[in-house]
């Protein structure tokens, strides 16, 4: 066991998120994202087949499951980076079916990627500024007249610097993003996502490849998102992180949601243990699947 992967203070868990028994597809009191009958097939292989799932508002939800469970594909489907063969899903009551990824993002649903997509040949500051929405200078014609966008750009820079300071990247704002370490890139990507002022942040393996020294601050940042009123959905393998910060856990296996519930209960669910380990019960999942000491790079 390692203390690295725990937040600096004991997080306040949100409870009472669901209505009725915690079973796969259980209804939430205040769902922000609802997906129904989502199916995605590659060739003959069904990668995702989710009957029904709801993500609770202003809570931290973890999406876990063994490799190949379809977590990232499900992420891609929800955010418009891939289209399902069938199914409906909505965000804040608005259907997202057929909505292209950039419009999904504009609605306030922002995602990060498993393999970080820091824009290496842009400076850290430019990376941050790209996150801001509604920039006048990003329109072709007005970009030609600096007077139209200089003031807004300066405001964005202040906001970006503020976020960079919180993520302890302020000293590097002039560096090319390519010069950052893997963990710093994850931080940059998260900070950049926050520049968009999202309502729902979807993080794909935020801890993968992050230096243990940085994991703590990353966890704090994720908890911060909740305090600031945002909703977080994240994919993670590290069970300790899931236990400590998640308010709700959704378990996927072979493309289906096999269990849902509060972190401590769901870990005891036989279906979950089955999904991870076959019949080997009574094994601490964290010891087997969690990265007790996190590797420097992936």
């Amino acid at each position: 066991m390692s203390g690295n992967a725990t937040p600096s203070s004991t997080p306040v868990k949100s409870t009472g998120l669901h209505i009725g028994d915690a079973a796969p597809g259980v209804a939430k009191k205040d769902p922000i994202l609802v997906a129904h009958g989502i199916k995605r097939q590659f060739g003959g292989l069904t990668a995702v087949d989710v009957a029904h799932v709801e993500i609770p508002r202003n809570a931290i939800t973890a999406l876990i499951g063994p490799n190949g469970a379809g977590k990232t594909t499900f992420f891609n489907l929800l955010t418009g980076f891939d289209q399902p063969n069938e199914g409906d899903w909505s965000f804040d009551g608005k259907s997202l079916k057929g909505v292209p990824s950039f419009k999904v993002a504009r609605m306030g649903l922002i995602r990060t990627f498993q393999l970080t997509k820091a824009l290496g040949l842009l400076t850290v500051m430019d990376n941050m500024k790209l996150g801001n929405t509604g920039q006048r200078g990003e329109k072709l014609l007005s970009s030609l007249i600096p007077a139209l966008w200089k003031k807004q750009d300066a405001e964005i820079e202040v906001k970006a610097m503020d976020l960079l300071t919180r993520f302890k990247l302020d000293a590097k704002h002039e560096d090319f993003a390519a010069s950052l370490s893997g963990g710093q890139r994850k931080l940059l990507e998260m900070a950049r996502a926050l520049m968009t002022d999202p309502t729902l942040v979807m993080l794909d393996e935020p801890m993968a490849g992050v230096n243990p020294a940085l994991t703590q601050s990353l966890l704090d940042h994720i908890l911060d998102l909740k305090t600031q009123g945002m909703t977080v959905l994240f994919v993670e393998h590290d069970m300790h992180m899931v236990r400590h910060i998640a308010d709700w856990v959704i378990v996927m296996a072979e493309g289906k949601v096999v269990a849902e519930g509060a972190p401590d209960e769901v870990m005891k669910n036989p279906a979950v243990i089955d999904a991870y380990l076959g019949s080997h019960q009574d094994v601490d999942l964290g010891a087997v699947t969690g990265r007790i000491t996190l590797p420097e790079t992936k």
Partner: peptide
């Protein structure tokens, strides 16, 4: 650099 990253930030 990476058009998916830009897409995820809401740019067309």
């Amino acid at each position: 650099e990476d058009e998916d990253a830009i897409r995820s930030l809401g740019k067309n």
